[in-house]
Design a protein around this nucleic acid. Structure first.
Lengths: 221, 221
DNA sequence: ACGATAATGATAGTAATACTATTATATTCG
DNA sequence: CGAATATAATAGTATTACTATCATTATCGT
C-alpha cells in the first residue's frame, strides 16, 4: 500500500507523473524498459508503444529521457534517505548507527512493495548502471544547482555526522561515505561483469563485509 | 621523444592510428575535442573538420566513437601499467611498493611529454569523466572478452599481490584496489562539481592522503 | 445534462547523428 | 613509373530526440 510519499525533485519533470494513471504507467514501464534496454537503447517511442501511448504524451511529463533518468535517481535517493532515517530511529549508539547505515547502503535491495508503480530492485539496477551517465555531463553544474543531488548530499551529511561522533578527529568523513556509496555500485557491477576486479566469497555478502570492515578500520582513532 | 611504445588493444581500432600522420592527428585532436566537448557532443564530423579531414577518413581508423573512447582508455591503462612497473622497480619493501602504487593511482597526472600526440592530462580527464560510459553498456561482456580491460585487471592484480605480501590474510585485495581506482576518479570529479561530497584540505592532496590512509588502515593485520 | 477545460492520441515533420557507399584524387612503394 | 593504397569530397540512409498540429476523449463545475 502506498502510504509513504516520495518527494522527487520538481525540476526533473514537467507534469507530476504520480498525478495520473498515464503518468504512473510511464514511470512503472519506464523503469522496466530502461532496465532491460539500457539507457542508450531506451527511447520514448518504444516506451510509448509499450504502454499503448505515444512519444508526444510522454514528453508532456518529461522534458527528455535524460530528465526521466534524473527523476528515477532523485526518487531512489529520496527513498533511500527515508529508509535511512527509519533505520536509525531509536538507535542510540553511534557505532550501531554507523553499522546500520553502511548496511543500508551496501546490501542488495529487495523490493519492499510499498510503491505499486515502482519496482525498487530494478530501479536500483538503473541507479547502479546508468547514474554516472546522468551526472558525467557538461551540464552537471546546472542540474546540481536545481537541487537534483540534494538527497544524495543529505545522506552523506547524515552519515558523516555519525562518523564525527565516533571519531571527531577523522578528516575525511564525506569522502569516505561517497566512496562507499559509489564503490558499492561499482563493485556490484564488477561482480557481474568483471569479476577479476573483485573478491567474492561464498556464504557472505562480500561487498557489504568489505565496506563494513573498511569503514570501521579507517575511522578508528 | 617517443621512445616507449604503448601497446593498445588491437580490437579497439581498424587501422593503427600510430602508423600514419593522419592517424596521429586523429588521436591527438580526438583527445583534445572529446575532452572539451564531452563524449556525447563529440562527433567524428566535428573532429574531421578540425583536422582538415573528413568523417569517412576517421571511420577507416575507428569503427565508432565508442571504440575510439575504448582506444583512449586502453592507451591510458597500458601507460599506467608501464609507469607502475617503473615506479616499483628496485623497491624492496612491500610497504614502500604499496605506497608508491597508491601514489601513482591517486595523484593527479602531469604531462610527461613522452608521447607527442597524446596529452596525458587531458587523457586522464577523459578517463575520469567518460570511462563509465564505455563499460556501462549492454555489450560490456563482449568488449571484455576482447580483452579491452586486461591492463586494468593486470594493475589490480599486481597491487593485490603486494597487499597479500603485507597481509596474507586480508580477504578483499582486488576490491580494495578497484575501489581506490574508481574512487579516485569519483572524488576528483566530485571535488570539481559536487564538493559537498568531499573534504578538501588546504596544502595537501586530500584525495591521495585519504586513500593512502584508508588502504594502510584497512589491510593492517 | 452541458459546455468548458484539460489530457491524451494520431500523425507529421525537423535537425542532428552515426554511420555507409561511391567516386575522384593524391601518395607511396616495389 | 605504374600499381596499389590512402585520403578527400560528396551524397545518402536509418534512427533519434524532439516539436508542432489537430482531433478526440475524459473531467468537472454548474
Amino acid at each position: 500500500m502506498s502510504v509513504i510519499q516520495i518527494s522527487v525533485n520538481q525540476k526533473t519533470f514537467i507534469k507530476d507523473p504520480t498525478s495520473s494513471d498515464l503518468g504512473r504507467r510511464i514511470v512503472s514501464q519506464g523503469i522496466e524498459s530502461m532496465n532491460t534496454l539500457g539507457f542508450e537503447q531506451f527511447t520514448f517511442r518504444k516506451l510509448g508503444s509499450e504502454i499503448g501511448s505515444t512519444e508526444a504524451s510522454i514528453y508532456r511529463y518529461f522534458e527528455s529521457k535524460h530528465k526521466m533518468l534524473l527523476y528515477f535517481i532523485s526518487w531512489y535517493w529520496n527513498w533511500t534517505d527515508y529508509r535511512l532515517s527509519l533505520a536509525l530511529t531509536n538507535v542510540e549508539s553511534a557505532d550501531d548507527r554507523l553499522k546500520r547505515a553502511i548496511h543500508l547502503l551496501t546490501a542488495e535491495t529487495k523490493e519492499d512493495g510499498n510503491f505499486l508503480h515502482v519496482n525498487e530492485t530494478k530501479l536500483q539496477r538503473i541507479v547502479i548502471e546508468e547514474s554516472s551517465k546522468a551526472y558525467h555531463q557538461k551540464f552537471v553544474d546546472e542540474i546540481n544547482k536545481e537541487g537534483v543531488f540534494s538527497d544524495y548530499k543529505r545522506i552523506v551529511e547524515t552519515i558523516a555526522d555519525i562518523i564525527l561522533e565516533i571519531n571527531p578527529t577523522y578528516k575525511y568523513p564525506h569522502m569516505l561515505i561517497s566512496t562507499v556509496i559509489e564503490g558499492t555500485h561499482h563493485e556490484r557491477f564488477f561482480a557481474d561483469h568483471l569479476p577479476r576486479l573483485t573478491d567474492s566469497l561464498k556464504g557472505e555478502d562480500s561487498i557489504e563485509c568489505f565496506f563494513q570492515q573498511l569503514v570501521h578500520d579507517t575511522i578508528q582513532k
